[in-house]
Amino acid sequence: MADALTLTATTPCYGLLPKTIGTCVLTETDLGALTSVAPYKQGAAGALKDAHGMDFPAPNRTTGKQGARAIWFGRDMALLAGPAPDAALAEHAALTDQTDAWACVTLSGDDAAAVLARLVPVDLSLAKFKRGHTARTQLGHLNASITRTGVDSFLILAFRSMAATLVHDLVTAMESLAARR
């Protein structure tokens, strides 16, 4: 029999965040369970709606609301963020647990978009990238998922193993913007 054993969870940005620099704040964000939902050929839009009450997101968009969101995550794929996936979904889509795979951070503040303009080769201006819009792209050298969650706030997901680099790159850009103020 196993001995009495407890394993303590460590989040990807443990010891790295939060940071407040200039007008911006960078914090680690707990999104709850993360599950990639990759529909099989017959589709899973109805099943997602039935199980979690949200539409399957179109490319570059999110559906749902804070606490239970579906973030478009790639070709024919969504990331269900918040609730544990309904078992019935598994008939319609490949479900993969990603809860521990992503460093999830929120960058907010007046200069947030300007900070990301140092790192991301996609137009994230408010006029083109509105609240609820999302993009799979790069942040510096990292592959990332970036979602606008407010006028001046963004949810950023990058590989867990690269959390230190993610924070380093964002902090450097935050400092550069702070120094311009």
């Binding site: 196993a2 001995d3 054993l5 990639s36 990759a38 529909p39 099989y40 794929m77 889509a93 490949a94 993969t96 647990d97 990603q98 809860t99 521990d100 795979a101 992503w102 590989f159 867990r160 193993s161």
Partner: peptide
């Protein structure tokens, strides 16, 4: 459908004649 889960799992090799003892303790 294909999905990378390299980041999701921390995986450890437990190797040697006493490996099962260690595993069974967990």
């Amino acid at each position: 459908r294909i999905m990378s889960v390299t980041e999701q799992w921390a995986q450890f090799a437990i190797a040697g004649p006493k490996s099962r003892d260690l595993v069974n303790g967990l």
